[in-house]
């Protein structure tokens, strides 16, 4: 593998991590969706570069799915949901931005250490890819943990799944059917959660997940 291929793959994967950090500090919902769409675009670029490098044409399909669903359909749908719910002004800060970013950096460092240690036998491209993918997954989880708003939790979940796709494409020989089924299961999860959002909204006048807990009542 040439130097250029490695550098470009590194660039895209690192870009994905960078966009994950951008997601972390967005507290406006529309901006969050835009950054999420950007992440999907970067993912699609990264996957198609992998397809080119590995000479695996089926990865182009994965890239197309990522581009079509994650960069266009899902953000648009979430956009409409936010508009219909009228929650675009909601600002949420369970954990403030500074500590969140610091924690994110710690997570990236952690995933680097773990992955580089564990995969010492693999080719360098796959190692880097896996390390970045784990960072994206952990940052997505971090986002789900630090947000209360249901929409941003969905976005966190989706970006976590982006990390999974990155890991899957980095590993050679992952069959297409696995990627497609993962993509579809995420899509179905998205539909279910989206429907649920409206139900929550109907009942509680808010999409703050804490309202659910208040409704359920605390400890008996």
């Amino acid at each position: 593998m040439g130097h250029l291929e490695f550098d470009v793959a590194h660039l895209f994967a690192g870009g994905l991590v960078l966009v994950s950090f951008m997601l972390l500090y967005q507290d406006r919902l529309y901006a969050l969706l835009n950054v999420f769409a950007l992440q999907a675009v970067v993912l699609a670029l990264s996957v198609s570069w992998q397809a080119y490098v590995q000479g695996a044409p089926h990865l182009y399909v994965t890239a197309a799915i990522a581009l079509f669903f994650k960069a266009i359909i899902v953000p648009m749908a979430l956009h409409r949901i936010i508009a219909r719910l009228g929650v675009h002004r909601e600002v949420e800060n369970v954990v403030s931005t500074g500590p969140t970013m610091l924690a994110g950096m710690g997570l990236v460092a952690l995933s680097m250490v773990v992955m580089l240690r564990v995969t010492s036998a693999a080719v360098p491209l796959a190692r880097e890819d896996l390390a970045f993918a784990l960072s994206v997954v952990l940052l997505g989880l971090l986002m789900m943990v630090t947000r209360n708003n249901a929409v941003s939790q969905i976005v966190g979940f989706m970006s976590l799944e982006n990390g999974l796709i990155l890991a899957a494409t980095g590993a050679k020989g992952m069959p297409l059917v696995v990627e497609i089924s993962v993509a579809f299961s995420v899509l179905i999860a998205f539909i279910v959660i989206g429907t649920l959002l409206f139900r929550i909204r109907e009942r509680f006048d808010t999409i703050d997940a804490e309202a659910l807990d208040r409704f359920r009542g605390g400890r008996r």
Binding site: V94, L141, M144, V145, R147, N148, A209, E210, L212, D213, R216, G217, G218, R219, R220
Partner: peptide, 10 residues
């Protein structure tokens, strides 16, 4: 059994 969703995720 009576924690919030966010705490379960955490």
């Amino acid at each position: 059994q009576y924690l919030t969703i966010r705490i379960y995720l955490s």
